Amino acid sequence: MAEQNAPVTPSQEAERYLENARLILTEKAGKKDGLYADVKYVKMAAGTAYSAALLILDEYLRQKEGIHFTKPKSIEDYMSRLRKYDKKLLRILASVYDELHLAGYYHGTRSVDTMQKGMNGVKQMLNYI
């Protein structure tokens, strides 16, 4: 863990969110036969992991745009701005959005595979900052 007064980097904060999401799934969601038992905790973990993705994207865009950076207001805004810089990161975001935000958080998927794929996408995104 970071020292008491040491500033936390966006990368460290995103990793913390991802770890929290993993713990929610492991300790609370209850896994059996490739499905989670409690959708409430899946939604909570998906929202937490997706928040990590947004932290990463904000930092990535801040690095690219410098003083011109403003926080995007929608997923479309994130995607159109990413399109200018990195198509691979854009594809990862599209998957993470589908798996974590739509399937996980919004629809409450019970699929372990869907959640793992989304969280692995966020881990890949960490390499961009």
Rank of each mutant, 00 (worst) to 15 (best):
V122F: 05
L93W: 09
E59A: 15
I67W: 01
A52V: 05
K84E: 15
A6S: 13
R62G: 03
E59I: 03
L25S: 09
M44V: 03
M119S: 06
E27K: 15
K88D: 14
A103V: 00
Y41W: 15
S74M: 02
D58C: 06
L25R: 10
F69G: 05
A45M: 02
E59T: 07
L18C: 12
T70D: 11
Y36L: 09
V39T: 15
L55M: 14
A6P: 00
A103K: 12
M119R: 14
R110H: 11
L23R: 15
E65C: 02
Y85I: 04
S74V: 07
T109D: 10
Y105I: 01
I67M: 06
M115Y: 08
T26M: 06
Y105A: 03
A21F: 09
G104V: 01
R16T: 14
M119I: 09
H68M: 05
Y50R: 01
Q63I: 07
L102H: 05
Q12M: 11
L57K: 03
K40T: 08
G108E: 08
Y36G: 05
E15W: 02
L35G: 00
E99L: 11
Q124R: 13
T48S: 08
N127H: 10
M119W: 08
T26I: 08
V42K: 04
D77M: 04
H101A: 10
T109R: 03
L93Q: 04
R91E: 15
G34E: 02
T70N: 13
G66A: 05
S111D: 09
L100P: 03
M115V: 09
I67V: 10
L61I: 02
G34L: 12
K71Q: 14
G66I: 03
L18E: 02
I67L: 10
G47K: 03
L61W: 08
S80L: 06
L55D: 05
G34C: 12
P72F: 13
R22K: 15
Q4F: 15
Y41G: 08
V112G: 06
K71W: 01
V39C: 02
R110Y: 08
E13S: 13
G118Y: 07
S74F: 04
Q124C: 00
V122K: 06
Q12R: 07
